[in-house]
Design a protein around this nucleic acid. Structure first.
Lengths: 195, 195
DNA sequence: GCAAAAACTGACTGTCCAATCAGTCATACT
DNA sequence: AGTATGACTGATTGGACAGTCAGTTTTTGC
């Protein structure tokens, strides 16, 4: 593999597991078998590397959702919400390091002073909120979801799913065991009783 | 103020804002006007200080809920759930540093190897889950909440509230603006339609 | 008032780490 | 074959940091 990609790969893993402050460049060098100075040849500073990692995560998330929607069909909006929730939980299991990274505090601190970082985070969370919002709008149009504000409701559903994923990655309890309940509660929260 | 308490106070603030790795003992010393060595007189290591801070947070949370329940009366279980959610959000505004600390990754990493830390976190999250679970059980008994598993539902409601708080402390969007929607969605999720 | 204990401190140490730099190696083009 | 460009590296540097220690000041008990 390309050394630059190897650094990004190891960087994603380390930043996700140990955070920005907890990761040392020499550790990263040792892990990849690449000389320390080589990392600084490809990435000017540690922060630059972090931003490159975050950009990759952003691209990965956008691509994943694109592929998911390209391959999926839904009966109605409510089923689309349920599908998106399942996909979120699938992704959280499959790409745990993405969510570990996003559940750390450092990206948000950095975003306060670094517009590039802020930009990446905005794209990621806009994507997250958007997929739910689109599903809710569709559900309202087809009558499967009752008359509720799409954007705000999308943010709350996102918070809920994100909260469950965080509790799982923190090993506080198992999200898998809650899957069925989560779906049922979401359905009850959104569904149109008149239909 | 007692120097030990001043150290704990500043420690809570710094660990919450900058994390364990991002906080330096000399910074803490400078902030409090206390000599660096004095901190190590009261707390053997940086980790010891962190545990003491977490213990204080734990005690504060338990005390807050005790006081809240001592001062509150609820018509039924569903209203109790709503009251608890409001109180959570109130606390998240009032004691932001507690939630910043709990939304960091370090405590959970430390908990994997340090049983004292694990103990504190368990007490905190058991408290959180318990208050919701009690409310749901009461609601099921008085008929205001439909027939759903109390513990699992409590965990999901907790995830949702915790998720909203996290999004707020990360400055991704404002929890206040979602308050009304959150309450309405929760009510819809739990309420017993037969009543 | 005094002795013992507790609280506190300045100066220091060894370690670790981000970043630099001068220079080597591989590749591509002429 | 020669050279220019990009990829890579070992050795080093300067600063920051957790933790120590020997000694001073303050508090406590009598």
């Amino acid at each position: 593999m390309n050394k630059k990609d190897a650094i990004l790969l190891a960087g994603t893993k380390l930043f996700a597991e140990k955070g920005f402050g907890g990761t040392s460049m020499s550790e990263l060098a040792e892990m990849t078998g690449i000389a320390g100075a080589t990392i600084f040849y490809h990435f000017k500073t540690k922060e630059d590397l972090f931003l490159a990692v975050l950009e990759q995560v952003k691209d990965g998330i956008l691509k994943s959702f694109d592929e998911y929607f390209a391959a999926s069909r839904f009966e109605n909006g409510l089923e689309m919400v349920e599908g998106v929730i399942s996909f979120f939980l699938f992704m959280a299991g499959h790409k745990e390091e993405w969510f570990l990274l996003l559940h750390r505090n450092h990206p948000y601190r950095l975003a306060e002073v670094n517009p590039i970082c802020r930009g990446y985070l905005e794209v990621i969370y806009n994507c997250f909120a958007d997929v739910f919002e689109r599903a809710i709008r569709r559900g309202r149009a087809d009558g499967s979801i009752r008359d509720i504000p799409a954007h705000k409701t999308a943010l709350i559903v996102l918070s809920m799913v994100d909260g469950v994923i965080r509790f799982k990655t923190c090993q506080l309890y198992d999200a898998g065991a809650l899957f069925g309940n989560l779906m049922e509660l979401c359905r009850r929260m959104l569904e149109n009783p008149e239909k």
